[in-house]
Structures are given as structure tokens and as C-alpha cells.
């Protein structure tokens, strides 16, 4: 069973712990990342995502637990692990004084490409990542998006079996983010297992085949996006009152009628609340209209990943049955 799991899984971790000055940043996490998929670790800032990833990438030694990465024991054979993985950290790990091309040649040589082969590999990557024009400029003159691209290119000098991406789109504009997503899908399509961390629910929803939700160093849920949504239970009623100033009043009415706390959308204009069935939802909307609160929009649907996340982390105190 264990052997079977190790051959089909890029990561098999049991009870991983990392403490910083007595505080457990990662507090006993089990993780199974099947080969060939995009796996997202979702959680708020400070949840322990980066620490977990750094442990799996051999950058930080675990204080407890065991893990096998690409079939190699994390603690006993870190160098074998390093040979099979690649990591793009949260902050550009590039030499600012060197040019983009020199950065890639440097890494290609460290991987074992010699002379001309290293230069050829660097030029290939520069072309692939749309950086050929900036190849001979120092990295310190690059924009945020260009740095990110070079940073990811630097992780692909040799095609890794497992690619770690720590918050790959943080700080990028929407267009650059789309580009990174496309690249991640392409990579996964070519057989690379991708383990990424994100604090964006949309990112996990869009990209990941499987999502682990982490909070306070513990895994609080895991599954596909669909499974996580289903686990939160009943359908949700989403209501956007036409008059935003009556949002509080509308929330009170919905809470009294449906018996569940209302959640507000991040923009604050839409209310979401658990509604047992369509009849209850219908009654609640009717009550709003009777109170003179005209809904500009209302719908019944499964919870968004946002709602799942808030429900799981207890962000708004929602209790799921």
C-alpha cells in the first residue's frame, strides 16, 4: 500500500511539524500529492503555506514527521529530492546585478550544461518566456511581471518532476496572472506535477485539480473544488439589494427567516446565506420585497469557494451542520 502510494505520488507527507521559537508554524500536516496534477495549498497569510513548501523543497528541516518527495526521503536523501524538484519562491530569486541571460546561464551550468549548451538552453528559455528583448539587460531594470517570468524560467532549466510555486501570481496584474495560469496548465499538461500555494480562492478554483485548505498550521479540509463546495452543505441564497444603504436591514431579515448568519461579499454589496431549500429561499425573498427592499439581483446556487473558505476557517463564525 505504502510502496504503491509512493510510486504514484509526488509527495507523501505524514505529521510534518515546524516550530519557530516554540510556535508551530506547521502543526502536524499530512499531505498526499498525486503525480501529474496541479495541487493547491490554500490559506490566508501566516497559515504556514510557505513553511510547508520550504520543508518539502529541502530548504527548512522539519522538526517532526516524515515525507517522501518524488520517491526520495526528505531528510535522508535531500540531494536526490533536489535533483527531481524545482522551486520558485515568493520573492524573485535572481541576481539583480546580472542580466537575465546570465542568470539563466548560471543556473544551466549549475545543472551541468556545459559552455555552448548552457547558452543555448538560456536562449531557448528567454524566447519561450518572451524575454529575448531584455536578455542583455540587468535584472534590476526588469518590471515585476518580467522578473516573475524569468524566475519561473529559472525553475525550468531542467524539466522538474515536481515544481513548487510559492504564490506564483502575487503582485501581478490580471493579464500577467492569466499568462502564469496558462503556463502552469501547459506545464501540468506536459506531465509536471505542480504544487502551488495561494491565498486567492479564484486561483485555486481555476487551476487546481485538488486543494488543501490550511489555517494556523493545520490542514482543515482537502478535496476537489467541487467536493469542498459540497462539504459546506446546503445551497446558498445570494441577494443584492438595489439600495445598498438597506443592506444591514436586509441581512437581519434573512438571518431571522433562514436561521443562518449572512455573509457579505468582499465588495460588500451582496449577501449570501444558507437556505435549506427553494421554498425557504422564495419566502425570504418575498419577505424582503414585502419590507420594501427591492433585490436588484438574487440567485440560488452552490457556495463559492470564498464561502467555503470562510465557513472552514470560521472567518464569520458560520457553523456547518
Amino acid at each position: 500500500m505504502m510502496v504503491d502510494q509512493q510510486s504514484s505520488h509526488a509527495v507523501v507527507a505524514r505529521g510534518l511539524v515546524k516550530r519557530f521559537g516554540g510556535v508551530a508554524a506547521v502543526d502536524g500536516i499530512d499531505l498526499d500529492v498525486p503525480s501529474g496534477m496541479i495541487f493547491a495549498i490554500l490559506g490566508p497569510n501566516g497559515a504556514g503555506k510557505t513553511t510547508l513548501m520550504r520543508m518539502l523543497a529541502t530548504l527548512t528541516a522539519p522538526d517532526g514527521g516524515t515525507a517522501t518527495v518524488m520517491g526520495h526521503d526528505l531528510v535522508a536523501a535531500p540531494r536526490d529530492v533536489r535533483g527531481a524538484i524545482s522551486m520558485t519562491g515568493q520573492f524573485a530569486s535572481l541576481d539583480e546585478d546580472l542580466t537575465g541571460r546570465e542568470n539563466l546561464i548560471l543556473l544551466a551550468r549549475l545543472w551541468g550544461f556545459r559552455g555552448r549548451a548552457a547558452k543555448a538552453r538560456a536562449d531557448e528559455l528567454l524566447a519561450d518566456f518572451d524575454l529575448a528583448d531584455a536578455a542583455t539587460r540587468q535584472v534590476k531594470s526588469y518590471s515585476g511581471g518580467m522578473r516573475r517570468r524569468l524566475d519561473i524560467a529559472a525553475s525550468l532549466v531542467v524539466t522538474p518532476g515536481l515544481l513548487f510555486l510559492d504564490e506564483p501570481t502575487t503582485g501581478l496584474d490580471p493579464k500577467a496572472r492569466q499568462g502564469v495560469w496558462r503556463m502552469i496548465r501547459d506545464l501540468a499538461g506536459s506531465g509536471v506535477t505542480v504544487l502551488l500555494t495561494t491565498q486567492y480562492l479564484e486561483e485555486a478554483d481555476q487551476l487546481a485539480d485538488r486543494i488543501a485548505v490550511i489555517d494556523h498550521g493545520r490542514k482543515i479540509a482537502e478535496g476537489t473544488s467541487r467536493e469542498l463546495k459540497a462539504a459546506t452543505g446546503s445551497g446558498y441564497l445570494h441577494v443584492t439589494p438595489a439600495d445598498p444603504s438597506r443592506l444591514d436591514e436586509a441581512a437581519r431579515i434573512l438571518e431571522v427567516l433562514l436561521g443562518h448568519p449572512c455573509q457579505r461579499s468582499p465588495e460588500g454589496a451582496t449577501l449570501s446565506v444558507v437556505a435549506g431549500d427553494a421554498a425557504q429561499a422564495n419566502g425570504a425573498v418575498a419577505a424582503l420585497i414585502a419590507a420594501g427592499i427591492e433585490p436588484a439581483d438574487f440567485s440560488m446556487g452552490s457556495p463559492s469557494l470564498d464561502e467555503v473558505f470562510f465557513a472552514l476557517t470560521g472567518g464569520t463564525g458560520t457553523d456547518t451542520p
Binding site: D130, G145, R149, V158, T159, K175, G179, D186, L187, S190
Partner: peptide, 22 residues
């Protein structure tokens, strides 16, 4: 200049690791 063109069109060649350097 760069944000106007969508980045990333990597033709993923599966590049194997050369023999480990000394």
C-alpha cells in the same frame, strides 16, 4: 511594453538533466 503582449508561450520541451557536474 511587456504587459501589452501576453507572456508565456513556452514550447515545453522535456529537458532532461545532464550528467551531474563536479
Amino acid at each position: 511594453m511587456t504587459s501589452s503582449t501576453p507572456p508565456f508561450r513556452p514550447a515545453f520541451r522535456n529537458v532532461q538533466r545532464p550528467p551531474a557536474p563536479s
